[in-house]
Amino acid sequence: MIKVERRPVSDPGIDENAKKLTPEQIEGVIRHVLEKESAGRLRTFVETCIHCGLCSDACHYYLAYKRDPSYSPVAKVRLTLWDMIRRKYRVDAESIKMYARISYAECNICKRCSMYCPFGIDIAYLMTVVRRICGLLGVVPQYLQDQGNSHMYTYSQSWVPQDDWVDTALWLEDELRMDIRNGRIPFDKEGAEVMYSPHSLEAKFKTNLLTNIAKIMNVAGVDWTMPSFDGWDSTNQAMHVGDYETMGMVERMHFEAAMRLKVKKIITSE
């Protein structure tokens, strides 16, 4: 693996978990993701890239790091996917730490590079494949993995269980009535026009944002509702972890909530 300049950053989710990896586990996971889970897109994109570097200017990391070539989109593929493929999946834990750092912390999957690539190679997708490998190996930045775990345990991103969610919305409604006479935060209104699904933080430390939305909806006279049951949270950090099993569950719950309430539209925040 070639040397790239990086300021060392310690993250228990990456450093501690990488210590537990065995070579067989690493090889097995990479083989599973690259050969079983991925198919046409991965192979075609990797075989088509002509290494021209025209994607570089698309990347805000590349520009922000003063055009350091190791931050260009194609360089990130070169340091992760090509590296695994060239070494026939036999890579060590240090490499996995590097892959995790690059895919989680040096790319935020914005897809701008796909708009710059003459072949339309979806480099962001290639980075999600790398994240999937790191996610399955459990080598994930701790804060992100924590949010992923929260989705598993509480069905919301920030450890807000369903009873807390209802409780929060009820006291927000009380406070709303100081500003708007008979203001309502209507739960479970079947057949409403709109289901508003908040960001998880609106039920935790940024409740004023939910109040703002409630004010807008009340004053505008929108026929709106929110689910009192699980599926209210619109966020999905499991997707960023690479935990597609939890991601699927979260996404399904969200849409099933809308189906159950028979709403016409879903409005999400931020």
Partner: peptide
């Protein structure tokens, strides 16, 4: 070799064009 971008070009573009 990667000279096959002559053939793949049309398909990678078609996919990404469709997705976008």
């Amino acid at each position: 070799t990667r000279l096959n971008h002559m053939v793949y070009f049309w398909f990678t573009r078609a996919y990404t064009g469709s997705e976008f």
